[in-house]
Amino acid sequence: MVVKAQSRPAEVLRPGHAGCPGCGHAMGMRMVLRALGNRAVVVVVPSCVAVISGPYPYAALNVPMFHSAFEIAAPTAAGISQALKIQGKDDIPVLAFAGDGGTFDIGLQSLSGAADRNEDFIYVCMDNEAYMNTGIQVSSATPRYAWTGTSPMGNTRRKKHIMEIMAAHRIPYAATACIGFADDLTAKVKKAKEMRGTRFLHLLSPCPTGWKMEQHLSPKAAVAAVETNIFPLYEIFGGSEYVINYRSKGLPVETYLSLQGRYRHLRPEDVKSIQAETDRNWEELKRRV
């Protein structure tokens, strides 16, 4: 079929970046940025996002941006946002990308502070569920049982519930999103862009390298995470009003786990336990709606 030309939003991410083949982060950054547009300021902190952003003197993003320190994505964004307001540039949104380590772990305090003050920025946690940039070490975003270089027998802790932490700050907007549902992700970024105050996006972006799966599987793994209710898509307005955006197929968790080498060691009872935990979380989420 002859495909008709269609108008597309300008791309902010450029080719030639250093992401691994099939990188979920690169997909996520691309989707977020084309929804955001390039009249914005972007903050990155050490993470794969920063690596993708390019080495000096090259930039993979066609947008003004700053590579700040690991644990301060939020106050950095807040500082820039306040400065832009002082300069009368209220119309320029500030968006921070941080990894799961930079959000769940080392950056949690500064994020909490900024969210508490309801600083005006969009915060995107690019969650690939471990410290991938340093070569796959466990973070508090790593799910239970998952292999990493520092959880060689499988992680013994549960994944921290970052969304509830953010909801507890009563910020105007918090939402989960993933690269498998591009339209949903795009809509959430656009929605966030129209709001003010601290807006938080928890973006699941599978990492073929760290999850030990084939290069082409990132979007599929993301979809599977949603369809198994391991990573439901929902929004929280004002910290208390929950909206589930997508009613999943409720597939068994194996659909998701079996795609990934980091779960290869699971015993049947482990899978059962993951299923039970997933079901519990899903029921709990539904109760909050």
Binding site: F66, A69, I72, T76, I80, A83, S110
Partner: peptide
């Protein structure tokens, strides 16, 4: 800010903004 560390983060980024 919730810490001196974040205070300096905000100061330096605001300063870079001008």
């Amino acid at each position: 800010t919730e810490s001196e560390h974040s205070a300096m983060a905000a100061c330096l980024s605001a300063s870079l903004a001008g």
